[in-house]
Design a protein around this nucleic acid. Structure first.
Length: 868
RNA sequence: GCGGGCGUGGCGAAACUGGUAGACGCAAGGGACUUAAAAUCCCUCGGCCGCAAGGCCAUGCGGGUUCGAGUCCCGCCGCCCGCACCA
């Protein structure tokens, strides 16, 4: 029999239309039903999507469709992270208004996403740049402000003196502004902050409850929060002549046990003590300027060579009479951490050691492994830093000698506290979140500066503070700031003329609560409490690993802040998190070094690649993240047009584990297309052979094998999807398709109603287990099989547990850990019977060579190992 | 610099909680069908030795723990990612 080819181009839009008309993906706010919230990180509308963007949406869609089939009320929304810098750059470069540019991109990308056949509830679509959204964000800001969670303080920014603008770290290239090329200065600006540190302890503790998050993300957040327990204490200072001076130096340390190894103190170049010496020591001023030129990136600061400058003051050692430590301003000490000042112990900190070697400062080991010899223990190029659990002993430390590190810490803390010179402190690396951006295309911060009343929030009934449409982008600086009228308002408190805040919010704010807004996207308040209580938390969140720290931490903070203001009833927004890998693609360059699109090149049989138009040779680069600039992109339209979206979805789920990067190849998409055709053929041939359901009294062995294979596959695919192991689910579906194909061939010309019935059952199960991945094909097959329901609204098939058990098992048999034979035995055989049977096996007897075994280890249902 | 991750055939990979390494797919080679091609189907496919039966080696490298290690521990090597104003 011949079966016509599956015509994806005609069939896929048909089912998309039907799903849409029947509204099967609409999420209904019905607290009586068990809910499941699937969310992929929403996209920035940058222009067009390429096929690489599709991967995480497809993964989320598989989960959404599967959970729907499992009986959950699924919410699977989509929106746009629509504020941000690129829109403003487009405004500058192409003279388009950021709004027009953004909404045009949204329209393009929405149409592209719809091609992917995602089971999204488009009725809940939101865009963060829409006043409906940012109005509510401003209202949340006002709430946070009244709770003390939003405040203003001075902080450092990268300042471009030509463009009059603040630069992102990534816009600072070799110390210069990316657009102007001007040398960037670090400058203090009064900025808005969210008090994320108020939740530092809770954000850390909360990580322990997130058992469906990847360990590595939790670890990254833990390290980012950076909780440490240490000692804050104060040194007396003296001048070069040994006279006590008024200033004191407060430091924070976690290594107070090494106080007898201290050989210097160091403060940040921004520390008041360094600033105060600026006039006295000209080099200090120069050093501070140099430090400022490093910008605000912690990476740049830590990578630079460790240098310092002697401030000409000395810290008196708290325990050694007459010992004084020179105080340096050092470029590796951050003002934002601890007290902005440290004491340096070169023996036990690599940075301190590098610094000490450079400036010829003493290196005194004060901690060594417990089994080392104090007389000979010395530090060369590497500081000795003990690991947790190491057995250590203090040396060269007077009253601490012989103690372990924890004992010594305790002793110093006790003495310092007793003397009133210090206190035990808990410190965090986490800093408050600076949200001020001196930009146009963002959510205006709803505050007014009044000379009489100070900083006053815009009352909620006067929100939103709308962005003015008529901003201009041809002048450097913040368009809101030079708008002729926008910032001039009357003070909401006293009514006198006042000035609007012209900073807008970091776009991370927009993405910190969108998942909550999706629950009640058109509500007048930010969220409707009873509805958000039903839908949250997000059960499965899917996105890139690049968001492992900032976005996820900010969203966790935001949820806590909203909880404090009564908007939500929980602290953790994302119960399950999955971080997917990117789609990558080879890059192509012509002889002149121009990047080429995959479409522009031809791959020949011998593996060579040429420019299709000219025949010129192409140099092929390794697979990299798809990017417009390198042109290694594949458009979804083209793929859908040629192979259909199901083939594309299948390919994106196949082969590579979802958390790893996956390479897009022509061979891969062709293979996926073949699978689509193959399922179609299997369904066609089977339905021709076994039209409807037939009741069978007794299945023969061939039919039973088929049924068992089908139910095993069903059981595994279900587990695989639950665990998000899509590539393994795909493999199990291939396996079943192979089994069905073989059975179909064996059936040719035979009249075996039991096998025909088993085939039909197996094929139906195949279609249903593949449905979350290739939903259009599955719907069409479902129809061919004579079913009249909508598969997208049909529940997941039940596994028949009787089909999963076998009466015999095959046990691999090892001798000394090497496999020598296999034992086929009844599943319920006891260990003694297994042992006896094993020793009879040829392979075992041969390997033993007549000797008696010393031991036989039987691992039930798994393996047998004979120890000779 | 600090922090995190990864490493298995020609390629993407699988291997539950320490229990048969290489399932499944891609590529390649051989064959069937066909006037021919496409499509489809069948066979082979980690390396070495062997006519075969079979044996030895093999999960980046070097050690260790264990009856048994891709999996656990220690030490290296290589690659990738994040570092607070890109989103």
């Amino acid at each position: 029999m011949s079966v016509e080819r599956y015509n994806a181009r005609a069939i896929e839009p048909k089912w998309q239309r039907i799903w849409d008309e029947k509204g099967v993906f609409r999420a209904v706010d019905d607290p009586k039903q068990p809910k499941y919230y699937v969310l992929e990180m929403f996209p920035y509308p940058s222009g067009k999507i390429h096929i690489g963007h599709g991967r995480n949406y497809v993964m989320g869609d598989v989960v959404a469709r599967y959970k729907r089939a499992r009986g959950f009320n699924v919410i699977h929304p989509m929106g746009w992270d629509a504020f941000g810098l690129p829109a403003e750059n487009a405004a500058i470069e192409r003279k388009v208004h950021p709004r027009a540019w953004t909404y045009e991109n949204i329209d393009t990308m929405r149409a592209q996403l719809k091609l992917l056949g995602l089971s999204l509830d488009w009725d809940r679509e939101i865009a963060t740049c829409h006043p409906e959204y940012y109005a509510r964000q401003q209202s949340l800001f006002v709430d946070f402000f009244s709770e003390g969670l939003a405040y203003r303080k001075e902080s450092d920014v990268n300042w471009d003196p030509v463009d009059h603008t603040v630069l992102a770290n990534e816009q600072v290239i070799d110390g210069r502004g990316w657009r102007s090329g001007a040398l960037v200065e670090k400058r203090k600006l009064s900025q808005w902050f969210f008090r994320i540190t108020a939740f530092a302890e809770d954000l850390l503790a909360g990580l322990d409850t997130l058992d469906r998050w990847p360990d590595k993300v939790r670890l990254m957040q833990r390290n980012w929060i950076g909780r440490s327990e240490g000692l804050t204490f104060t040194f007396d200072l003296e001048d070069a002549d040994g006279n006590l001076i008024d200033d004191k130096l407060t430091v924070y340390t976690t290594r107070h046990d090494t106080i007898f190894g201290a050989s210097f103190c160091a403060v940040s170049p921004d520390h008041p003590l360094a600033v105060s010496r600026e006039s006295a020591i000209p080099d200090v001023a120069a050093f501070r300027r140099e430090f400022a030129a490093l910008g605000t990136s912690e990476e740049a600061i830590e990578r630079t060579e460790k240098r310092g400058i002697n401030l000409g003051v000395y810290a008196r050692h708290p325990f050694v009479e007459g010992l004084r430590l020179p105080v340096y301003a050092a470029n590796f000490v951050l003002m934002t951490y601890g007290e902005g000042a440290i004491f340096g112990c070169p023996g036990h900190d690599q940075r301190d050691l590098d610094f000490a070697r450079k400036y010829d400062l003493p290196v005194i080991p004060v901690v060594m492994p417990a089994d080392a010899d104090a007389a000979t223990f010395a530090i060369a190029d590497e500081a000795y830093v003990q690991k947790e659990g190491d057995n250590t002993v203090l040396i060269n430390s007077r009253f601490l000698d012989g103690m372990s590190v924890p004992q010594a810490k305790e002793e110093i803390a006790r003495r310092m506290e007793g003397a009133g010179a210090g206190r035990r402190t808990v410190n965090f690396r986490l800093r408050d979140w600076g949200i001020s951006r001196q930009r146009y295309w963002g959510c205006p911060i709803p505050m007014v500066h009044c000379e009489a009343c100070g900083v006053v929030p815009v009352p909620k009934d006067q929100l939103p503070v709308l962005l003015p449409d008529d901003a201009t982008f041809d002048k450097p600086g913040n368009p809101l700031d030079h708008h002729p009228t926008w910032k001039h308002v009357d003070c909401p408190s006293c009514g006198k003329p006042a000035r609007r805040e012209t900073d807008t919010m970091d776009t991370f704010v927009d993405s910190s609560w969108y998942f909550a807004r999706f629950c009640s996207p058109r509500a007048a308040e930010p969220v409707k409490r009873e509805i958000v209580d039903y839908w949250l938390p997000v059960d499965q969140y899917i996105g890139g690993i690049e968001h492992a720290i900032l976005h996820l931490l900010y969203a966790r903070f935001f949820t806590r802040a909203m909880q404090r203001c009564g908007h939500v009833g929980l602290a953790e927004p994302f119960a399950g998190l999955f971080t997917q890998g990117m789609i990558i693609h080879e890059t192509y360059k012509d002889p002149a070094g121009n990047w080429l699109f995959p479409d522009d090149v031809t791959r020949h049989e011998d593996g060579s690649v040429t420019v299709t138009a000219t025949g010129a040779p192409v140099s092929v680069g390794p697979a990299e993240k798809m990017s417009k600039s390198k042109r290694n992109v594949v458009s979804p339209e083209e793929i859908v047009d040629t192979f259909g979206v199901d083939a594309a979805r299948w390919f994106m789920l196949s082969d590579t584990p979802p958390e790893r990067d996956s390479e897009w190849t022509q061979a891969g998409i062709e293979g996926a297309w073949r699978l689509v055709q193959r399922i179609w053929r299997l369904v066609g041939e089977t339905s021709a052979l076994a039209g409807g359901e037939v009741a069978i009294d007794a299945y023969g062995p061939a039919a039973m094998d088929l049924r068992k294979a089908a139910h095993k596959a069903l059981s595994r695919v279900g587990e695989d999807i639950e665990r998000l192991r899509f590539n393994v689910a795909v493999a199990h579906i291939y396996e079943l398709a192979n089994t069905i194909g073989t059975a179909l061939q064996a059936m040719r010309g035979e009249n075996a109603p039991d096998v025909a019935a088993a085939l039909r059952e197996a094929v139906e199960l195949l279609v249903r287990m593949a449905a979350p991945m290739v939903p259009h094909l599955a719907e069409e097959c479902w129809t061919v099989l004579g079913r009249e329901t909508l598969l997208a609204a049909t529940s997941w098939p039940e596994v028949d547990p009787a089909m999963l058990v076998e009466d015999t098992m095959v046990l691999p048999v090892q001798v000394n850990g090497k496999k020598r034979d296999e034992l086929v035995i009844a599943r319920d055989a006891d260990n003694a019977a297994i042992e006896r049977a094993v020793l009879e096996l040829d392979g075992v007897r041969k390997a033993l060579g007549g000797a008696a075994p010393r031991r036989v280890i039987v691992v039930p249902q798994r393996i047998v190992n004979v120890v000779a």
